[in-house]
Write a protein that binds this DNA or RNA. Structure first.
Length: 574
RNA sequence: CGGGGCGUAGCGUAGUGGCUAGCGCGUCUGCUUUGGGAGCAGAAGACCGUGGGUUCGAGUCCCUCCGCCCCGACCA
């Protein structure tokens, strides 16, 4: 039993000034956590209980699925990460340190290497597979910008698991097993979430899904169709293409369009000078990018921006892209900033990638590759050919759902879990092979699955609070029942204590506010702030042999005879 | 890393270049009070983030660095 009189806890009357999101604000105010440095927190007793509860549920569900727990150090030598290439790839996000001898170490940001090497060290036959192992470990990432309190810290607890299979079919089975285990985990955690496809299937690449907990302070945006349930990461959203311009357009016509470096000015001049009656959507925007140093051109309708994240996610094999800058234009004089068009791409030796909306046969008003001039009737397939289609244009609320064409909504969420088919990247780099039935050496294929444990605490807090405090789901709360004794006499305290003891004997956890010196108001405020599911008040109505039972979430109150309160609570908490 | 904001007691804050840095909450002592963050009296608690400068005089003005928060870039 937790007792407020001795609990190491100090609640704050005011919101901490540097906390803006609800979970951060309330977890600090209610005394669950304390900030130590940017993105680094200490956990106080109540916080530890909540964190352990989340951990326990995650562990129970992993174990139930037959996965086995292991534990790696957080402090790791450089070698495995050098071998996998991530010592260099990870960049400044990796916390690096040296020991007294000057040898390089790191604080693990994620443990693919260690899992791979551990399996390599123990297993060598296909008959040992499939294998699923997991750990719950503190991870370290020197984020460029930690934010939103617990949601994105530099130190955080994560459950990460890995599956090892001989072939793709096995990997798919392992993936589905994990997917089901995640569904039961997040259901038990009391989280609302959507399972969102995280990579465009059409473009190949590994299968990957994210578990997103919707909430306004989330930092991930995703697309949701309220009719058919389609949900996708913005990067993975696919475009429904409508054919336009079915009739054959006239030949290209080059027009004088002085001072029209932007779509907006172009539309204005076209309409005023040429009575064109067009909108931004009738123009073609040509955005020059450097993809791993090579210039490419992305075509999107003029009314849409290019979403660089979508381009990057959908251009296979490209590691880094960035926009052309003034100095790049200076080097390549053939590209006239503000007047770029696709019709000379071959001549310029540049690759074209078109958003799917730029259908073959469609014609556009676009740059003439000459300053102050634009061209119209520039037709895809006749006047230019593209090297490929790529999902490039920004996704907007109201765009058509790829399944049912209903307008989609765009929502924000916290990524609480991620499952994906890793493939052979690490197995290859670290040479994890087994002998198959024919005695031939085969590289193992892996799946990687993560749950942000500390982040889940924050997400639960985000989804379960009101103006006055936290409202924990049953399995997460520090205690199921919060008992407040009021009044000056001994009797309410004695009655409250006996109720508490009886509840604990029945397996119901209790936080008993047994403070004599605190006023009733203080106790009520603290109870609401801390947010246990049920509140029992022993005081005034004791004269009639009653106590008050309140539901934190609904706010409903009920007078219950002392004798039946325990059985009533057991009922309510079922 | 770019842009913005902010560093004054445990928390929230006030402080035209001029006395001993003020207030609320919390903490401690005593009395009083017990169904909505009680009342009275008293007390402790501050290197005003750091270093430098301007000035007769700096919490206040200037510069450096550090830290924190927000937006963006970034983020298995």
């Amino acid at each position: 039993m937790l007792r407020m009189s001795t609990l190491f806890l100090r609640t704050l009357r005011d919101d901490p000034s540097d906390a803006s999101v609800a979970s951060h604000r309330l977890l600090v105010r209610a005394g669950y956590v304390r900030p130590i440095a940017a993105g680094i927190f200490s956990w106080l007793p109540l916080g530890v209980i909540v964190l352990r509860n989340v951990e326990r549920i995650v562990r129970e569900e992993m174990d139930r699925a037959g996965f086995q727990q292991v534990h790696f150090p957080a402090l790791l030598p450089k070698d495995p990460y050098e071998e996998s290439g991530r010592w260099d790839e990870y960049g400044p996000t990796l916390f690096r340190l040296k020991d007294r001898k000057g040898a390089d170490y790191l604080l693990g940001p994620t443990h693919e290497e260690m899992f791979t090497l551990m399996v390599k060290g123990e297993y060598s036959s296909y008959r040992d597979l499939p294998l699923h192992i997991y750990q719950i470990q503190t991870k370290y990432r020197d984020e460029a910008r930690p934010r939103s309190g617990i949601i994105r810290g530099r130190e955080f607890v994560m459950k990460d698991s890995y599956s090892f299979d001989l072939d793709d079919a096995g990997l798919e089975v392992s993936y589905q097993k994990h997917r089901l285990a995640y569904i039961s985990t997040f259901d038990r955690l009391g989280l609302k979430y959507n399972i969102v496809s995280a990579m465009a299937g059409a473009m190949g690449g590994s299968k990957s899904e994210e578990f997103l907990a919707p909430c306004p302070t989330g930092e991930d945006t995703y697309v949701l169709c309220k009719k058919c349930g389609y949900a996708a990461n913005v990067e993975a959203m696919t475009t429904v293409v409508k054919n336009k311009d079915l009739e054959t357009p006239p030949a290209i016509e080059v027009l004088d369009t002085p001072n029209t470096p932007t779509i907006e000015t172009l539309v204005e001049v076209m309409n005023k000078k040429y009575n064109a009656n067009i909108g931004a959507a009738d123009t073609l925007k040509n955005v020059l990018l450097l993809a791993d140093g090579e210039p490419i051109c992305i075509l999107v309708p003029g009314d849409r921006e290019v979403d660089l994240k979508r381009v990057e996610a959908n251009l296979p094999g490209v590691k880094e892209i960035r926009l052309f800058e003034d100095e790049d234009f200076a080097k390549r004089k053939e590209f006239v900033k503000g007047y770029v068009g696709p019709q000379d791409a071959k001549k310029f030796g540049i690759k074209l990638y078109a958003d799917p909306r730029i259908t073959v046969g469609s014609h556009w008003i676009t740059g003439a590759n000459i300053k102050d001039r634009h061209a119209r009737y520039v037709t895809h397939g006749r006047d230019f050919q593209v090297d490929g289609f790529v999902e490039a244009a920004e996704v907007r609320e109201g765009d058509a759902c790829p399944n049912c064409e209903t307008p989609v909504v765009i929502d924000r969420a916290i990524e609480i879990g991620h499952i994906f088919q890793l493939g052979r990247k690490y197995a290859e780099a670290l040479k994890l092979t087994v002998l198959d039935a024919a005695g031939k050496s085969r590289t193992v294929t892996m799946g990687s699955y993560g749950i942000g444990v500390t982040r889940a605490v924050a997400a639960i807090a985000e989804q379960n609070h009101d103006e006055i405090g936290l409202v924990w789901p049953k399995e997460i709360a520090p205690a199921l029942v919060h008992i407040v004794a009021t009044g000056k006499d001994e009797r309410p305290f004695e009655v409250a204590e006996s109720i508490a003891i009886e509840l604990e004997n029945k397996g119901i956890t209790v936080l008993f506010d047994d403070r004599k010196e605190a006023s009733p108001g203080v106790k009520f405020k603290d109870a609401e702030l801390i947010g246990n599911p049920m509140l029992v008040i022993v005081g005034k109505s004791l004269a009639d042999g009653n106590v008050e039972v309140r539901d934190r979430k609904s706010g409903s109150k009920e007078e219950v005879p002392v004798g039946s309160v325990v059985s009533q609570l057991i009922n309510l908490l079922k």
